[in-house]
């Protein structure tokens, strides 16, 4: 009986890898049902006059009023734009540096302490320093977000390159591939590792984007949350929390979709 279920399960996992659009879009929405139920309970049993725990219907009213002021979409757009630009830059830099470090035999491990130091620097502590050097602007937010999200991509790329089979590198050399061709074959083979790094980096980048907006008050969802909190507008704070949550969910599903569409060619055993 247990064996039976285990088998069915593994078959289902395989199937979903190959046919990624096979009802996959519905599953996360079904998974959100408990949250919806919780909000419903809150709505029904909550205190309509509560200052700290406003009922969800007041959240939606708050969102709507933001929308009418023209603040909602422009803020989401600003946050999304910082996030997307940083992810692109972080992916390019992380992949390039990770490949370089993975290819240098002696440097790969020797630089570990430095990399550990840099990647553990808290983003919040970097914001003041970056603000002094670059000023409080979008460029500075980009630098902070890139700096904190580049590490998972860099380190995963490096270890993917280091773990490439020596047989692969011998056969690339033997076939006479050098320069650009060699790199493109290496990137292709390291792609599962690189994308794993991107998947880890994406939520981190979103967090740091919001954090940079909190601290610097640059336009964006983070700044809206900060001003709602400073105005003791608790319904708006909760509403924006929900917006941030939805943003994170969207980011996650986009990254997963990209990963699935790229990696279906790599076959079932790599993940």
């Amino acid at each position: 009986m247990t064996l039976q279920t285990a088998n069915t399960h593994s078959v289902m996992i395989r199937k979903s890898r190959h046919k990624s659009n096979d009802g996959k879009g519905v599953a996360p929405l079904v998974g959100l049902l408990p949250l919806a139920a919780l909000l419903l309970i809150w709505q029904v049993f909550g205190n309509p006059h509560s200052v700290f725990f406003p009922q969800p219907n007041r959240w939606f009213a708050a969102i709507d009023s933001l929308r009418q002021q023209g603040m909602l979409w422009s803020s989401i757009l600003a946050t999304a734009s910082t996030f997307i630009q940083s992810m692109i830059v972080a992916t390019l830099i992380g992949t390039a540096l990770g490949m370089a470090l993975g290819s240098i035999q002696w440097g790969g491990r020797a630089l570990d302490p430095l990399l550990d130091f840099l990647r553990n620097l808290p983003a919040a502590a970097l914001v003041p320093a970056a603000a002094i050097v670059l000023g409080t602007n979008t460029k500075m937010a980009l630098v902070i977000v890139v700096f904190s999200s580049v590490w998972p991509i860099l380190l995963n790329t490096r270890s993917a390159i280091l773990n490439l089979s020596p047989v692969l590198s011998s056969s690339i050399t033997n076939l006479g591939l050098g320069g650009f061709r060699r790199s493109s074959v290496m990137i292709g083979s390291a792609l599962p590792g690189i994308l794993l790094g991107v998947r880890v980096a994406a939520p981190l980048a979103l967090i740091v984007t919001l954090l940079a907006e909190f601290i610097t008050n640059l336009p964006g969802v983070g700044a809206l949350i900060l001003s709602a909190q400073q105005n003791f507008n608790s319904a708006e704070v909760y509403a924006l929390l929900l917006v941030a949550g939805v943003l994170a969910l969207v980011v996650n599903s986009i990254v997963s979709a990209i990963e699935a569409s790229v990696l279906h060619r790599h076959g079932p055993t790599t993940s």
Partner: peptide, 10 residues
């Protein structure tokens, strides 16, 4: 080792 000699994504 044909598994590693071939590119699995091609």
């Amino acid at each position: 080792d044909y598994v590693n000699a071939l590119l699995r994504w091609r």
